[in-house]
Design a protein around this nucleic acid. Sequence first.
DNA 1: CTCTAAAAGCAAATATTTTGCATTTAAAAT
DNA 2: ATTTTAAATGCAAAATATTTGCTTTTAGAG
Lengths: 139, 139
Amino acid sequence: MKNAQELIKLNHMKVTKGRLAVLQYLIDTGEPLTIENISLGVGFLNKVTVYRILDIFVSRGLVYQTDFRKGKAYFEFQEHHHHHVVCTVCGYKEEIAACISPAILKSVIKETRSFSSIDRHMLEFFGVCNKCGVSKNNY
Amino acid sequence: MKNAQELIKLNHMKVTKGRLAVLQYLIDTGEPLTIENISLGVGFLNKVTVYRILDIFVSRGLVYQTDFRKGKAYFEFQEHHHHHVVCTVCGYKEEIAACISPAILKSVIKETRSFSSIDRHMLEFFGVCNKCGVSKNNY
DNA sequence: CTCTAAAAGCAAATATTTTGCATTTAAAAT
DNA sequence: ATTTTAAATGCAAAATATTTGCTTTTAGAG
């Protein structure tokens, strides 16, 4: 388990107070957070800077950016790569280990004519949680 | 191949001029569109109404809502369910057939304690297209 | 310690999404 | 056909999210 500073260095970025704080906050909370969440959580950073820090973290693959159909981006440090199931009624989110298989990734590479490699993917599942009632259309 | 009106009726919604126009536009263009795109494309609908129409289309599974890390939602009619590879440099999008396997979906259901069914999922791949250069970090 | 490119701050603009309420309309009931 | 009514739409405004341009600060190389 590496610390924030090592992780930043390993990914070829300047180690700054802001980046350390954002990454540490993401590591500590361990759940998907919005820019607003992070900005408030860290406390001393300009929100624009938070946007820029997350942009670069995501582009280096240090942070997973995703979308839960809430009209804004969510960011999460992923010590272990994973995805979520989201309730479309109450917004409850559960972490899941299920992920695409290497075979699927290979088939993507094989299928596409315009990309020779895939850096990352975003995968989220939506349903209605047991509290909110049981959904009918399965697929 | 069903027409817009049948599709709306089949999904238990009132058939309105707005819904017909939006769905038809999505069918005709056949690519992921933003609210702005659809609003302009249809021409006569208030943008708020477009939001509301897409909300209900997505909730009924008639339309696939996704996110390409552009700070806004994309919507696409999916005659055949599919996903995309997106270039993180130029934004170029390519349609791909690759999708999660039924086995993965089963494993999600098995893994989660809070959901008894999954209605839909969002899956997108990101990379750098051949035009923009070749990315290094593969996984 | 100096220097410089990169990062952060700040203010403002732009874009996206949501909300509340008045009006219109689809389609069911008469 | 006409009436009725819940659902859909329009409109204006608010709230929220994201981007941009430019100045100042700072990490880290030399």
